[in-house]
Design a protein around this nucleic acid. Sequence first.
DNA 1: TACTAAAGTTTGATTACTCAAACTCATGGT
DNA 2: ACCATGAGTTTGAGTAATCAAACTTTAGTA
Lengths: 225, 225
Amino acid sequence: MLATETVENYLKAIYLVQREAAAGEAPMGKIAAALGVTAGTATSMVKKLVAARLARHERFGGVRLTAKGTRAALDILRRHRLVETFLVDTLGLDWSVVHDEAERLEHAISPMVLDALDRHLGRPAFDPHGDPIPRADGALQESEAMPMSELGAGDGARLVRVLDQRGDSLRFLRASGLKVGATLRVVAIEPGAGVMRIRPDGGTVVSMSTTAASRVLVRPLRGRS
Amino acid sequence: MLATETVENYLKAIYLVQREAAAGEAPMGKIAAALGVTAGTATSMVKKLVAARLARHERFGGVRLTAKGTRAALDILRRHRLVETFLVDTLGLDWSVVHDEAERLEHAISPMVLDALDRHLGRPAFDPHGDPIPRADGALQESEAMPMSELGAGDGARLVRVLDQRGDSLRFLRASGLKVGATLRVVAIEPGAGVMRIRPDGGTVVSMSTTAASRVLVRPLRGRS
DNA sequence: TACTAAAGTTTGATTACTCAAACTCATGGT
DNA sequence: ACCATGAGTTTGAGTAATCAAACTTTAGTA
């Protein structure tokens, strides 16, 4: 669009930080950390976004995207997630590497190529991590899901989304048989150790920290083993 | 590689200008024109390339890529042409638009994605314009071909390559049935008007300037009509 | 040979992004 | 109520890429 690549990255980062934050505002420090820049740099770039009516911000306060900024962020997210889907579904790359690849490609995709890609992939609604893909008009349907860490011992569930994009986390999950769409059962919970023991359907039991489990979203199944 | 996007563009431009030039040297003005920058800008960027041992240049002389620079340029060309092939073969875009799209995407493709793309496309040797795709090791096989403008009246030939990347030229050729792989016959030549009349196999006769025809490469067929 | 036009170079300024370091504000704990 | 701590901001400087305009060289022409 009219935005530079850097501006696109700021918009995406602010959008994602804002989603996480309870207040619906993105603290400057979190934005800076997400982008790997110093706080001063983030402050001055946010000024630019404000001047372009993409964000609101008052001194020493949080940052909030305007409607225009949110729209732009969703467009970037759409490009990112469609590219990820393409890399996994069409090119057969592993889901643990596609995030970083898409991070670069998302800025080089024109609306025309994006639409052709979307059509080629069959207009998917979710990317390989289970993240929803915003539609061309900016509509975004978040799926109903709860953190795996909130399941109880014996509960069964279907894995629907993985929030963590770190390569080693994703490789661990794949190696354990915990991929999007798989069903699983909580074998045991050890609150003292902060660990859950999970058995993926047809796999062997694995242990994960409840912290890690809270970044894996599931939809509970009725019935117990 | 280690190069910035701008440096990649300069390397590619110099490589292509150098191919065209008789002396095997790229004049500074041609480089600047190819990149759409002023001559002064090109001069200072070439200094950078020289400092990085990617090119050689002496004041008021031409520019010549070093082995290292040529290798890098071929790598970029490989990315460009594989992306073009992907856009046409996989996404079904028209060949008249893919050059500009690839111009942006070529800088965002990692070696890993490039190799996956190459495999997905069946390791093609030529892109949709008939341009050879450099191999991963930098090997480049130029196909044997002559400019269509050198054919005589009555000659038959197969269209193997289109050097012009301008969208309107490519749309004209496609609309005329003159695509890569098609066979054609020269119906008449009018040197005074600087025009050739061509009949593509199974199509109707079209006129093109000999200038335009010189940018279309063909392989002559034996036999006359 | 002398001069001019074309090509190339240099200089100084500008824009976008960044950092380090000095500074300012907000707040919670005793 | 104070004030230390951490979060945020400002300032000054640097890098990469660019342009316009002044300047230099080359080469062809008269």
